[in-house]
Amino acid sequence: MSSEAVVLEQSKKRAISKRKLRKRKELLKLTAIRIFILIVTLSIWQFASGRLIDKFWISSPTDVMQAMYKWTISGELFFHLSITMQETILGFVFGALAGGFVGFLLGRWTYGAKIFEPFIMSLYSLPKIALAPLFILWFGIGIDMKIILAAVTVFFLVFINTYAGVRNVDKEMLENIRIMGASESQITFKVVFPSALTWIMVGLRTSVPYALIGAVVGEITASNRGVGYLIQYSAGQYDTGGTFAALIVLMVFSVALNYIITTVIEKRFMRWKTEN
């Protein structure tokens, strides 16, 4: 290897190291700011509770922590959270697979899209919470109903993004590739799918909280298990601290699930994407 090549390689390594160091510093800075905002918010909440606003309405961080501690010691938290996790994850997986498949199929099948798109969009316009009573009638109040409700909610979000991603592939580029002799399977898996993958990932990220919403709405509507049940039960007992505790558990779970989607799945399928 020539001396110029060695110098160039060393320069590239130094540039990469500097970029990584800069990103690490930026992450630490953002983390510090977020922790500061969280501490200030909790401090204001604790101070206002019972002094500026009645505890009955906003509870307090200490009451919320006590409720979480009680649920953790008794095992209630892990039991109910595991039910909600199962409903959310299964609903997300089934809904994402179905939405991705139908969106990709109709995106490639123009005539079929003209036939079915009005029906799908009319169903999408329905508030999903309005389907809960009907799903209870059809599937009962067991875990199946919550999974299906979550899956239906996720389906439409993933479908719309997948369909839009497939339809937005450059038509001129597709024609040029066909002229060069590419088969439809090669076009589908080597051109259309990679081009639409960014849209699909946006749909998956967007649908994560909605999968949780579908599961929790089902639990609140009719259930004796799950974090949604804890919210309903705590609110029925006028336990504001317990209600806030259950909401915070849902927030943490949603953030963790979204982190898995964005870091594990996206990096696995979008390794080619250049990081900013």
Score class of each variant (00 low, 15 high):
1 M>W: 10
4 E>P: 01
4 E>A: 12
4 E>F: 11
5 A>L: 14
7 V>H: 02
8 L>P: 02
10 Q>V: 10
11 S>E: 15
12 K>H: 04
12 K>L: 13
16 I>K: 08
17 S>F: 13
20 K>V: 15
27 L>T: 15
28 L>F: 10
38 L>S: 15
42 L>Y: 10
50 G>D: 03
51 R>D: 11
53 I>R: 00
54 D>N: 13
60 S>Y: 01
61 P>T: 10
62 T>V: 15
62 T>M: 13
67 A>Y: 00
69 Y>F: 12
76 E>G: 13
76 E>F: 09
83 I>A: 10
83 I>F: 13
84 T>K: 01
85 M>P: 01
85 M>W: 00
87 E>Y: 01
91 G>T: 13
94 F>G: 04
94 F>H: 06
102 V>E: 12
102 V>C: 08
103 G>Y: 02
103 G>K: 00
107 G>L: 02
109 W>K: 09
111 Y>G: 13
112 G>R: 02
117 E>A: 07
117 E>P: 03
123 L>A: 03
123 L>M: 05
126 L>A: 07
130 A>E: 09
134 L>E: 08
135 F>A: 07
138 W>L: 14
139 F>W: 07
139 F>E: 04
146 K>A: 05
147 I>S: 08
156 F>M: 09
159 F>S: 02
160 I>S: 10
161 N>A: 05
161 N>T: 08
166 V>P: 01
167 R>V: 09
172 E>V: 15
174 L>V: 10
178 R>C: 11
178 R>E: 15
181 G>F: 07
182 A>E: 11
184 E>P: 07
189 F>C: 11
189 F>S: 11
190 K>Y: 06
192 V>E: 14
192 V>N: 09
193 F>Y: 14
193 F>R: 00
194 P>V: 08
195 S>H: 13
198 T>N: 06
199 W>K: 02
200 I>D: 10
201 M>N: 02
203 G>Y: 08
204 L>C: 05
204 L>Y: 05
206 T>D: 07
210 Y>G: 00
210 Y>E: 04
212 L>M: 03
215 A>P: 00
225 R>I: 12
226 G>T: 00
229 Y>D: 08
230 L>R: 00
231 I>S: 00
231 I>F: 04
232 Q>A: 11
233 Y>E: 10
233 Y>H: 07
240 T>P: 03
245 A>T: 05
246 A>M: 00
251 M>H: 04
251 M>G: 13
252 V>D: 05
253 F>S: 01
256 A>G: 03
259 Y>L: 15
264 V>G: 04
268 R>E: 11
268 R>H: 12
269 F>I: 14
270 M>F: 08
274 T>E: 15
